[in-house]
Design a protein around this nucleic acid. Structure first.
Lengths: 176, 176
DNA sequence: GGATCCATGTAATTCGTTACATGATTTC
DNA sequence: GAAATCATGTAACGAATTACATGGATCC
């Protein structure tokens, strides 16, 4: 599932600007799909080129001008096609967990900071999800939001429950 | 946390070949750290070049020869250094979840297959973790293994509990 | 005055994966 | 007979991030 298909997917729920697409993904599913604007804008340009989306430029005073994109019929077909081809992999690269595996080599204060930072991120994402409107959302979006909540919640709970013993062990490495 | 530091980390627990390192990461923490052998071997060559690891070639009959790497003192310092510099990010790119967000555009059988595949992966990873020896493992490794168990378990439970309603909604898209 | 939000884009670089390449041994 | 395990490496390719670039409006 490349960035192009992801954009088509967001647009399938209604027209949006590149900026909107980024926000949508970030706030709704940021815990599982991280896309930077530097990949979205070129992707949209390509899609426009291929006729998979249409574009309307909107001039704004007191705000930068923007481009509103909308899915075309061909684009909708391409979305179905792109989804069909995706292997559906779930890949994670957690430097966070890697740091914890080697916690014994981290200064205690750094360990604390790593855990606190991660907890703050999790809470931010949970807040985003909780604040979203569920009314009128597709079954897929609800499922995904619930999934994110479940997984993030489990991470947070585990960290809160076990950080103490980890920090104690890390503070006295000679006892290992 | 690049592949090089990851190799140093694995070697901090004892000497190993490139093949061993791959297995160790895959079986122990495959759910959170996915590294292909194509990045491990060049990384080890670099580390050897820089004197961060030492290498002993072992000739085997009935098996391909192998190279056993061990951490040097300089290497251990580099590990601590590498860990200190890591931002500790936890990044996920889940095409699996993306597919589910757009489940309404997937054929029902494909949806079923995506869910089944993911469940099978989760179970395989849980089995790996459960079958590992915990005796003598560092606090960090135990914490990480427990974290993986908690998160994978939560994923599995959520999918099992909610797949039915998702599949029903996807089967009758006109009712959305 | 400084940070954040809005809004779009490009260029360079880093990084990793896929595929290529080989091959004996054991297990089903 | 087919598939998996052990074991190491290279090359080409693709994809994404980081940093560069700009700039008014609003909030604290």
């Amino acid at each position: 599932l490349d960035t192009r298909t992801l954009c088509l997917g967001v647009l399938s729920a209604g027209e949006a600007s590149g900026y909107d697409i980024k926000k949508c993904l970030e706030e709704g599913f940021g815990a599982f799909l991280d896309v930077s604007h530097a990949s979205i804008y070129p992707a949209l340009a390509m899609l426009l080129d291929e006729g998979l989306v249409s574009c309307t430029e909107v001039r704004q005073s007191a705000r930068p001008d923007k481009k509103i994109y909308a899915l075309t019929d061909v684009g909708r077909e391409a979305l179905v096609d792109g989804l069909a081809k995706s292997p559906g992999r779930h890949r994670v690269r957690s430097e966070f967990l890697a740091l914890l595996i080697f916690a014994e080599y981290l200064p205690p204060e750094r360990l604390r900071q790593v855990l606190d930072t991660r907890l703050a991120e999790i809470d931010a994402q949970l807040r985003h999800i909780a604040s979203r409107e569920r009314v009128g959302e597709s079954a897929g979006r609800c499922f995904a939001a619930g999934f994110a909540e479940a997984v993030l919640g489990a991470s947070r709970d585990y960290i809160l429950e076990h950080r103490r013993s980890l920090e104690q062990a890390a503070a006295s490495p000679e006892l290992t």
